[in-house]
Design a binder for these strands. Structure first.
Lengths: 354, 354
DNA sequence: CTGGCCATTTAAAACGTTATAAATTCAGCA
DNA sequence: TGCTGAATTTATAACGTTTTAAATGGCCAG
C-alpha cells in the first residue's frame, strides 16, 4: 500500500508553506529571516541577536523542528553516531546489555546516538572497523576483547579515528581504554582459595590471544608462587568454551590422578559448568573443593549462592567508556587522561581467614 | 592531535584530481563522462550502454569507490538501514545475539545495514519508535515482546512505516510478524508433564501484558483441562523475574500446603532458578518433581541435562524477520504473506509414555 | 553629510547523490 | 535533404544543512 520509498508521513504539500517535515526553510518563512540566520540562531551563535535566537527557538519548538541528520552529516562530515562493535558471544549473561546501557547513560543529553554494529558476518573484526571508517558510519568506536597487538587498535590509531577499547593492548602507541584490573582480581581470587586451605588451585584461563587472558594468568601465577603451592591451568578449555565442554573437561580431569582442589573461574557460566562437572563426580562445593568466580550478573548468586565472587560492574565500565570517547572526540589529546583501570572491589569477607 | 571534525584520511588535495575519498565526480573526471552518467552506470540503468557500464564499474573498483550514504540518504530519503529495538533485558542467554545474527544473515548481500538501537533510556518503547520514524533513522524496524494492543504497532501501522514484530498482537489491522507457537509449546510441554504421571503442574507465566504470556497460559490451561488434573499458576513471579526471586518464590511455595509436583518453564533461567529452589527444599528433579522448559541456548542442557526441553530457534526467527521486512520494504502489500508462525519441534522422546 | 566601524543579517556556494528533462548522435526512410 | 525516433549522454536542479564572504543599517567622529 504505502510507498516505502518516501516517508509516509510526508503529506501532500498544502498552500505556500508546504506541509511535511519542517526544515530550516520552514522556520525561515515563518519568521521572515534567512535560512542562514535560522541555522545560526539554533546553534546559538553569538553573532545573532539574543532576541532573534529566542524567537527562532520558540518557533522551532512549536512546529517540532528537528534537524535532518543526513544533511548535517553530508555537510559537516560528522555523523553524531557512536558505534559499538558487538561480538556474537558477547551477549552471554548480560555483557553486552550492561556495557551498552552504560554507554547510553554517558551519551544521554549529548547529540550522539548509540548504534550497535553486530559483527556476525565479517569474519574478522578488522574488516568491520575498516568498513566503518571508510564509510564514515560513526564519529567514534567502542569495542572490547583486545589483543596485545590488536590490529583494530593499530588501524584506528593510524587513521586518527577516535575510539576506546575495553581492555588494554601492548602496542607502543598509547590509546584510550577502560579496563578492569584482571590481574588483581585473579590474584585476590586465588589468594582467597589458598586462604581457605586449598593447595592446588586450577585456572580456567581466558581465551588465548586476548590481553586479559594474560592478566588473569599472571595474577593466578603470582598468588600460587607466593604461596608456594601446586597449581594447574586446565588445558583444552577456556572462558569462551561452551558450558558443556567445560563441564566435561572438569569431569574428565577428575578421573585422572592428582586433580586440583579449587578453581579460579573468570565468569559465571564457567563456574556453573565447573560445579556441574564436579557434582557429576560426587564432589560438593565448599567441602571437597572451592570456587571463586567473577560475577557480572545475578544469575550465579541466585543459583549457587555458595560461590564466592568478585564483582565487575560492566555498566560503570560502559559509562566510563562513553565519557572517555566523548572527551577524545571533543579534542582531548592527552591520552594518559583517557586511560582508566578499574579496581576490583574485594569483599570484606575475603579478609577473614578461610 | 588529529582533528576529529574531518575524516583523518582526507589528505590535502593534490593537483587537478584532488585526493581524498573518491566520489562520482572522481570517476567522471577519469572516464570523461558526466556525473549523471556515472551514477546511472553504477546502478546498472538500462539506458546506459553496456560498454559504458562496464568501464565505469572497472574504474570504480580500481579506485575503491563507495557511495556516500549520507548523500544518498539526503537525496532519496532512504537510509538503507534496518533498525532493531533492543530491550535491556533481552540480552539474557543469547536472545538478542541469536535474533541479531539471524537478521544479519538475511541482510547479507543486500544494501541494508543492521543497526541495533538499545532502548535503555526512553522509558517507553513507543518514544523510541516515534523518534526513529520522525528522524527517518531507518527504513524498517524490528522489535519484539508485543502486547495485544501494542502502541508501537499501532503507530507504525498508522504511519505506513515498514516493520516486523517478533510476536503477535490482537489489533484489527493485520501486520507482518514472525512468531513462535507458544500455545503449542506450552500445551505439549504440559502434556508431557502429565504423561510422566504428574498431577499438579505449575506454570510460571510470561510477564503480564505481553501477547505470548496469554499463549503460554492458554496452552497450559488446555492441557490441564483435557487431563482434568489440578494445576497452579505461580503468583508473584514471571519469566522476567530475576532468578533469585523465582528461586525464593518456589521455595516459599513448598513451605505451604498442597504444592505443585511439576513445572512448565518458559525459559532456561526460570528452569535453573526453579531447580535451585526445589533443591533447597530437599527435592530432586525427576524424582519428586519434573520440569519441561523452553530452550534457546545451550546453558541449561549443559548444567541440567535432566530437564526436558523444547527448542526455539531464535536465529531462524531472526532470519525470517529479516526476510519478511525486506519483502515489506520491497513493496509486498499482501500482509498475509508476511505472517509466519513457527512450529515447535516436539522431541520424539515426548511420544514415549512417561 | 561623509566615511568608517560595529552589530546583525544575508546571499551564494558547497557537501555527494539522484531525478527530471533536455540535448546529442546516428540510422532509417520519405 | 530533411524528418522521425531510438539510443545514449548530459545539464540542471534539488535534498537540508553549514560555511564563507558579503551586504545592510545604525551610529558616531570628523
Amino acid at each position: 500500500m504505502a510507498d516505502p520509498s518516501k516517508p509516509a508521513h510526508a503529506e501532500d504539500s498544502g498552500s505556500a508553506a508546504k506541509r511535511g517535515k519542517p526544515t530550516l526553510r520552514t522556520i525561515a518563512e515563518i519568521t521572515g529571516l534567512a535560512v542562514t540566520t535560522v541555522s545560526r540562531a539554533l546553534s546559538d551563535a553569538p553573532q545573532i541577536s539574543l532576541d532573534t535566537r529566542k524567537r527562532v527557538r520558540e518557533v522551532a519548538d512549536e512546529i517540532g523542528y528537528s534537524p535532518d541528520r543526513a544533511a548535517q552529516r553530508l555537510k559537516t562530515g560528522r555523523t553524531n553516531v557512536i558505534g559499538v562493535l558487538l561480538d556474537p558471544h558477547e551477549e552471554i549473561l548480560g555483557y553486552g546489555t550492561s556495557i551498552m546501557s552504560g554507554i547510553a547513560k554517558a551519551l544521554q543529553g549529548t547529540a550522539y546516538h548509540l548504534i550497535v554494529m553486530p559483527n556476525f558476518l565479517n569474519s574478522t573484526n578488522v574488516e568491520a572497523v575498516n568498513y566503518i571508517t571508510r564509510n564514515a558510519m560513526a564519529d567514534g568506536l567502542i569495542f572490547s576483547r583486545t589483543e596485545p597487538l590488536d590490529p583494530r587498535v593499530r588501524l584506528l590509531s593510524d587513521l586518527g579515528f577516535p575510539f576506546v577499547t575495553h581492555g588494554r593492548t601492548e602496542l607502543s602507541t598509547p590509546h584510550p581504554y577502560v579496563d578492569y584490573d584482571n590481574f588483581t582480581f585473579s590474584y585476590q581470587a586465588t589468594k582467597r582459595l589458598i586462604a581457605k586451605g586449598r593447595r592446588k588451585p586450577a585456572l580456567i584461563s581466558g581465551p588465548a590471544g586476548f590481553t586479559f587472558a594474560g592478566h588473569l594468568q599472571h595474577g593466578f601465577m603470582t598468588a600460587v608462587r607466593e604461596a608456594g603451592c601446586a597449581y594447574e591451568i586446565l588445558s583444552g578449555i577456556d572462558l569462551d568454551s561452551p558450558a558443556g565442554a567445560i563441564r566435561d573437561r572438569v569431569r574428565q580431569r577428575y578421573a585422572e590422578p592428582d586433580p586440583p582442589d579449587s578453581f579460579m573461574c573468570g565468569g559465571e557460566v564457567c563456574a556453573l559448568a565447573t560445579i556441574t562437572g564436579m557434582s557429576d563426580c560426587g564432589l560438593t562445593l565448599g567441602r571437597e573443593y572451592d570456587i571463586v568466580a567473577k560475577q557480572t550478573s545475578h544469575l550465579l548468586s541466585a543459583i549457587q549462592p555458595q560461590v564466592e565472587t568478585i564483582y565487575e560492574d560492566l555498566t560503570a565500565t560502559g559509562e566510563d567508556m562513553g565519557r572517555v570517547l566523548l572527551q577524545r572526540i571533543g579534542g582531548e589529546s592527552d591520552v594518559s587522561r583517557l586511560q582508566l583501570l578499574l579496581c576490583p572491589q574485594i569483599p570484606s569477607s575475603f579478609d577473614a581467614a578461610g
